[in-house]
Design a binder for these strands. Structure first.
Lengths: 139, 139
DNA sequence: TGCCGATATTTAGCACGCTAACTACAAGGA
DNA sequence: TCCTTGTAGTTAGCGTGCTAAATATCGGCA
């Protein structure tokens, strides 16, 4: 039997690389009670408050059902505040809570360190190439 | 607001590349009633029958709980057969069902085509580099 | 023999991520 | 005004993937 029979399958390689990266984020953020996805949503909200659920979903490429659940749990945990927009009650407006605002800087630092940790096996040019390839896969 | 604020976050890039690849597999395999993961498990079983759940999990880097559930659904759907090993009843032995054996060749072809489709935006050297980088991330 | 610790699998519970169905609201025309 | 159509968000149901706890079996040792 081949030892690593799946190294030619790009789906497998992507899945495992994502799993590993996700694990590193998870470890780093669990002391805050945040999941990896939630950490991304938090920084997105901090970059522009008042976005709707749909706009956040587009930004982070999450479908409506997924972003809806994530926002719900984050509001529940006190990271963000969900308001319905006055002009059009179909829309939400998502804001940081005081807790969210206070910890955003730290979360962003953790995220950057996690990214650094994940990429530590690659040289700078390799990191740039990898990112370009991953973007090119998204066509 | 930046248009694509997360292209610097390797977790985000990996997640989205994986999502897209997974989507292509999903589309291609749903006519068989197979999920992307199940397609990988099926080809793994076809390469060596009689492996235990744990051995398959190690091969595919899936934890016990996950492989257990996947195997259950695949047995339910009639792709594989679960037997308990006679020598040590703690172990399972996983075999292909007649249906699994019949369709494995086709499934492998679909998998190869899906991989080709996913990588189609990259030249050959780029594909090899990408695979190497993804493996290197798994340290 | 009978118990103890190790090992393989299963189960429960949570968080995505997807599709599909549903609700709520808005806008525009008959 | 009423109705139809479209849009934003929620909910339900499924399949991973994880951790932790439970179950079943084995092996060895008193």
């Amino acid at each position: 039997m081949a030892k690593k029979p799946y190294e030619d399958c790009i789906l497998f390689l992507l899945a495992k690389a994502f799993q590993r990266a996700s694990g590193k984020f998870k470890k780093r953020f669990q002391k805050y009670g945040l999941t990896p996805v939630q950490s991304l949503v938090l920084t997105a909200v901090s970059e522009e408050e008042g976005l709707s659920a749909g706009e956040l979903g587009k930004l982070l490429v999450l479908d409506q059902a997924t972003i809806s659940g994530v926002l719900d749990r984050m509001a529940e945990a006190g990271w963000i505040v969900k308001e319905t927009a006055a002009e059009d009650k179909r829309f939400l407006r998502i804001y940081l809570s005081p807790k969210g605002r206070e910890l955003t800087g730290e979360i962003i630092r953790e995220r950057d360190e996690a990214n650094e940790e994940i990429m530590s096996g690659l040289r700078l040019e390799e990191r740039l190439l990898l990112k370009r390839f991953l973007v090119d896969l998204q066509r």
